[in-house]
Amino acid sequence: MIRRDVILEDTTLRDGEQAPGVAFSKATKLKILDKLIATGVKWVEPGIPAMGGEELDTLHAMLERKDEVKLIGWNRGIMEDVAATIDMGFEAIHIGLPTSSIHLKESVGKDRTWLFQRAAELIKYAKDRGVFVSISAEDVGRTEIIFLQEYAIAVSEAGADRLRLSDTIGILSPEEYWRRVEAVAQVSAIDTQCHCHNDFGLAVANTLAGLRAGARYFHVCVNSMGERAGMPDLAQMTLALKHLYGRDLGIRTEHLKELAEMVAQASHQPLPAWQPVVGDNVFAHESGIHVKGMLNDTNTFEPFRPEEVGNVRRYVIGKHSGRATLRSVLEDRGIDVEDDRLARCLTEVRAAAINQGAALSPDQLCDLYKDLSRTAEVVQ
């Protein structure tokens, strides 16, 4: 059972921007933050203070809105980073620390004794300064569960408010991610956060599994952005929780399409037509039997209405169209339709779609039908 107080935290401006080749300017980051707030997102990870330069200026500007949204400052496991982030005015911080042997050895060159000591001292320092403290178990997929439980107990006893369970390289199945969240819950009451990467296309499924296992928080990015294959998509998680699990997060879903397009433009990565929820093809119908059903009842082939997510419904005229589609378009254009002529028009439409390798416009359909009408008049 997914708890009713689950919290969506967006990291488009931190993990999303870490996607190779993406670099947001100050103006862009502020524009995206504004849209996230307008969409109803209440927790945001806006960037990395330790980057310095323009990023610091940007984060200072974002902090002017901290009464409207919970801003989480991301830090390496370094005291100077944590201190500087709190000094900036962040009232919530995250501390990134690895727990797998390979990451401890190869990424930071440390051992488990160092990990426990560093986590404890950073948590104590931050809590003494009165901020919300989130801390990672990075590369949780390659962290032994017994050790993960020991670490969860340790950071909880040190005073951390939240433990982020990061499937850093996206190697877990939903069952295995669920197992790790549940294992932490067995030994500690600390809130957990899902942070799932999409390397096997399972980020959304893993996050839902983690929430079903009792996690309270979860990370998303707009358009599934992020390192390598990205993160769980904000729109997909919002709609899945709302429609499949009955959990309304307070997101203003009518903004989702516009938000997705804004971020796509800013990252120079066009939205795939098949992107769930916000893609152009999600509410596009071509198959004859589908369109016939849709014209009778739009629930026939749509799980939710396009207006709910700021998208639009389209009926496509192409190779797989049926007479119902053609009749609907022609009659909407004020053209009287005859059954025999419509059947011949359908044959012409399919041939034209194959010839041009794409759908026909309504104007092309009307021209085809009118040509058939003129031919019939000449024959008569």
Rank of each mutant, 00 (worst) to 15 (best):
R350S: 04
I102V: 15
L163E: 02
P270W: 06
C366Q: 11
N75S: 04
I123V: 07
F301H: 12
G73T: 01
F90I: 05
A213R: 02
D111S: 13
E182Y: 08
S107V: 14
G96Q: 11
A324V: 07
L330T: 10
S361E: 05
I317G: 00
T300E: 06
R252S: 07
R180F: 00
H290P: 02
D248Y: 11
L13G: 02
A183L: 05
D367W: 14
L56P: 00
V282Y: 03
M88Q: 05
A343W: 14
D57T: 10
C345L: 10
V282A: 08
I317L: 10
E106H: 15
D336A: 13
V379C: 08
A229S: 15
K26Y: 01
T99A: 13
I153D: 06
R162I: 08
C196Q: 10
R252D: 13
L148C: 02
V131D: 03
V131S: 03
E258V: 12
T113H: 07
S101I: 12
P20A: 14
D363P: 01
V140E: 02
A324N: 11
A240N: 07
A352W: 04
F147Y: 15
L259Y: 01
L241F: 11
I7P: 00
A183F: 04
E150P: 00
R216G: 04
R323T: 14
I169T: 15
P362Q: 15
G288L: 03
F147R: 10
S136R: 01
E138I: 04
P49Y: 01
Q236P: 01
K242E: 08
C345F: 05
T99R: 01
I78P: 01
C221N: 01
L241M: 08
L234N: 06
E45Q: 12
A50F: 07
L241N: 08
R212S: 09
T207A: 13
V22S: 05
H243L: 13
L259F: 07
E182I: 08
T325G: 05
R252C: 11
R216Y: 12
K105Y: 13
W74T: 06
V69N: 06
T207E: 08
Q18R: 12
